[in-house]
Design a protein around this nucleic acid. Structure first.
Length: 320
DNA sequence: AAAGCAAGGTATACC
DNA sequence: GGTATACCTTGCTTT
């Protein structure tokens, strides 16, 4: 089984995989032999960059690629590849150019102008809302390494096997039904989820038991809802507070201006922007201060403040 | 080698 | 409205 590569012309300052796929937006991308891979829906996606080319390939289960299906629909293979391009374009948000956004942020913000050059190509992914919700419930008081480990464990234990390639077995991210029926709080604790086991299980159960709620979660991408409505909607899930709600809204529900305030943002707001809340430097982050700091960055960066935040967040992570 | 500590916070109990 | 505390685990840093 060999990969069939396709190419998109896209310079590294529009997308830089080596940082983007490790900067804590998504937790299931792995790099092997210079190729990044993960699964989207029930498909394995491979990505690599060579100069100005972003290349992609994909594999899926034999079931979908069966000779019977191919025979009935000769064009299927081509159509599948079109789908893959669409899938990847959506996931990577390729309809939005970040080069112009970087210039815009740099013109408004001297600090951004000074430090962003070394962090070019950090864009916002548009991920699956359900996976993003669970992933960021796992992120509380946690680190990227363990969050990744937990997300992989969910797929391995409760997802479906897709295909094996180059010695790696790929699994889907489990659906709410799968998680609610196959997992339990106890089994999740055994997998090392700690106190987040209950949150993950209860959120799965809520969405498995209420299909309308699951549909509603996905419908939150619609511009019919305000950022505030999306934020409030997400707070109903166990283990979701203001920060996680903003992450899910920004990274999976098109809420480009939301800036999730976490320990890193708190740090660089004070260190690099002399941010002070009502003239005082409070030690802990109150809800009033949370809201105020979000407003501070939206006023500074504008409608894509959440995207700008991701650049500085990546810088603060100190990858490598 | 053992202890200490921080890691993309949230829920809960109190004032 | 606002602030203090417990909470699981892991990997890295400090003794």
């Amino acid at each position: 089984m060999s990969l069939v590569w396709h190419s998109i012309k896209l310079p590294p300052n529009e997308i830089y995989l080596d940082k983007l796929l490790r900067c804590g937006q998504a937790f299931r991308w792995v790099k092997n032999d210079n190729i990044w891979s993960s699964t989207l829906n029930n498909r394995v996606v491979f990505l690599r960059q060579i100069e100005d080319q972003l290349e992609y390939a994909s594999l899926t289960s034999l079931k979908e690629n069966s000779p019977k299906v191919k025979k009935l629909q000769p064009k299927l293979e081509e159509e599948i590849q079109d789908d893959v391009l669409g899938l990847i374009s959506d996931y990577l948000n390729l309809q939005i150019s970040i080069v112009q956004l970087y210039k815009d942020w740099a013109s408004k913000d001297a600090h951004f102008a000074k430090v962003s050059a070394a962090f070019a190509g950090i864009r916002m992914l548009q991920q699956d809302p359900w996976e993003t919700l669970i992933s960021f419930i796992c992120s509380s008081n946690n680190n990227v390494k363990r969050i990744s480990k937990m997300c992989h464990a969910l797929c391995l234990e409760y997802g479906d096997f897709i295909v094996e390639y180059a010695g790696t077995k790929y699994y889907t991210f489990p659906t709410p039904d799968q998680l609610a029926s196959r997992a339990s709080e106890a089994s999740l604790r055994e997998l090392g989820f700690g106190y987040r086991a209950r949150y993950v299980y209860e959120t799965s159960k809520m969405l498995a038991d209420d299909k309308a709620l699951f549909m509603q979660l996905h419908s939150m991408r619609s511009s019919n809802f305000t950022d505030e409505q999306v934020h409030e909607f997400l707070l109903q899930f166990k283990g979701v507070g203001p920060k996680v709600a903003d992450c899910v809204a920004l990274m999976s529900l098109n809420r480009h201006s939301l800036v999730p305030i976490d320990t890193h943002v708190l740090q660089f707001a004070r260190r690099d922007y002399s941010y002070k809340f009502r003239g005082r430097s409070n030690a802990t982050l109150s809800s009033a201060m949370y809201v105020d700091m979000k407003r501070f960055f939206v006023e500074k960066w504008g409608g894509y403040a959440g995207w700008a935040h991701s650049v500085l967040f990546t810088r603060d992570l100190k990858l490598e």
